[in-house]
Design a protein around this nucleic acid. Structure first.
Lengths: 209, 209
DNA sequence: TAGATTGTTAATCGATTAACAATC
DNA sequence: TAGATTGTTAATCGATTAACAATC
């Protein structure tokens, strides 16, 4: 294991730490022990200490963790204290829902453009953004820095569009299409396979009968 | 480990098997070995054989797996060959996107009602469903069998609504609110914490620089 | 100081991978 | 039959939990 390596398991828990610490901060809680935080998050105290210590000794013996400063540390580790410029490709149900959602803005994710290839949709206003013709995507990428592309297009066109985006230097993909995108090592994807979640729910319901 | 126990890790991969086998079937592939399937799914052949054997010996030595019948087996294990009646609570961006999405229908997930408490939204038609007053939810639950409730309401009201649904026998929850719902042992939840995915993407982009 | 709680090492547990006999 | 590939047992690897000395 390389030094400074953080396992996938830990990474997946980071947003949950960030969220719980946010709730605690809003409740006015100043300090918390790994034991108490574990109770809230349904994790063992041991695991919490191990997780947090992947990034440094943010606690103090005999005291615990300072809620606000731990939250800021984790926010910084996640990078949500930075601005991320985001475009949405596909103005269907999902694309529009993401465009209209303002819950991401507080974390610094800014949607700067929305594209579609359907003439019916091009020119429409979605929460202040005008849907642009997919044909104009390349021109847009030449003059704008895009950190993250939201892939909200049908299955069949997803990889082609991603290849195009990759060639213009886009490195982050939030993929809603039910396909495993092929990406170079220096690009990242997070998949949101909605139907898979529903299938797992179906499985669990069946198991419990 | 109890007999017949299937680990979380395996369960999470089941929908991916189901999807890949669906693609293979559509491509007209009749048979596949664990080796070939592993190449496609980025898993080892060994893991694929272990996973599938949690549910029974669906393969044949010297031949591999019959694509169509393995797909049907896994679909049956997931329960997607059954009809699931679903209601959506919350007619915001997410609730409406789920209501309009027809990609779930092929798996037997049928949206039968949509609720909201906002007078502006009540009565509106969303893809053939009339948004009903949240006040009428209890009456609806008395006369309709609901397998799954989609929780697409703001954070603060999520747990209250879930408690209400639980008291009327709803056992499955597809939760889009950024909160860990408290549920009894005989109920199940699948969380879709969209902002957490975006935060993980932000983390990965930061790591790669 | 005494009590509490961390940071960290060691032990355990579970999941993945490798190996190979069984068999189509 | 010979070759291929499964089902399954054993070995390895990694993640979680337990324990405890360090220290606030």
């Amino acid at each position: 294991m390389p030094t400074g390596y953080v396992s996938e398991a830990v990474i997946r828990r980071l947003p949950s730490y960030y969220r719980h610490l946010g709730v605690l901060a809003r409740e006015g809680v100043a300090q918390i022990s790994s034991q108490e935080l574990g109770n809230r998050m349904q994790l063992t105290a041991s695991q919490i200490r191990q997780d947090i210590n992947c990034f440094g000794g943010f606690g103090r013996q005999g005291y615990g963790y300072h809620v606000q400063s731990l939250r800021e540390h984790i926010g910084h580790i996640l990078g949500v204290d930075q601005v991320h410029q985001m475009i949405i490709v596909g103005s269907g149900n999902i694309g529009r829902a993401v465009a209209r959602s303002d819950s991401f803005r507080s974390d610094g994710f800014q949607t700067i453009a929305l594209f579609d290839c359907d003439p019916e949709k091009i020119g429409k206003n979605v929460d202040g953004l005008i849907v642009q013709d997919l044909e104009s995507l390349q021109g847009f990428l030449k003059t704008n820095k895009v950190d993250i592309a939201v892939i909200a297009v049908p299955l069949v066109s997803a990889q082609t569009i991603v290849n195009n985006l990759l060639s213009y230097g886009v490195k982050g993909f939030w993929n809603f299409a039910p396909v495993d995108l092929q990406l170079p090592d220096d690009a990242s994807v997070v998949n949101v396979h909605l139907d898979e979640g529903l299938e797992i729910l179906s499985f669990r319901l069946l198991q419990q009968q």
